[in-house]
């Protein structure tokens, strides 16, 4: 199983490229079981949404 270190890198990369089947599965499995990495993933999503809305309003 991949470590949190590997997963957090992949969560970032997942915002920039398409995963293969194996990678997608590994990330999803890990996120199901790891609340710390889920939080990290939510942070990354929130940053993306905020930047899309920038400059705000």
């Amino acid at each position: 199983m991949k470590s949190c270190w590997e997963i957090h890198r992949l969560v970032s990369e997942g915002q920039d490229r398409k995963f293969g089947f194996g990678e997608r599965l590994a990330v999803r499995m890990h996120l199901l079981m790891c609340s710390a990495c889920r939080r990290f993933e939510r942070q990354m999503k929130l940053m993306r949404q905020a930047l899309r809305r920038f400059p705000g309003e």
């Binding site: 470590s3 270190w5 990495c37 939080r39 942070q43």
Partner: peptide, 21 residues
């Protein structure tokens, strides 16, 4: 991360995106 690749400190809870944004 620690030596075995676990978070040293769990990432913060940033709350509900709908509210934060």
């Amino acid at each position: 991360f620690d030596g075995s690749g676990h978070w040293q400190e769990v990432p913060g809870d940033w709350g509900d995106p709908a509210v934060v944004l």
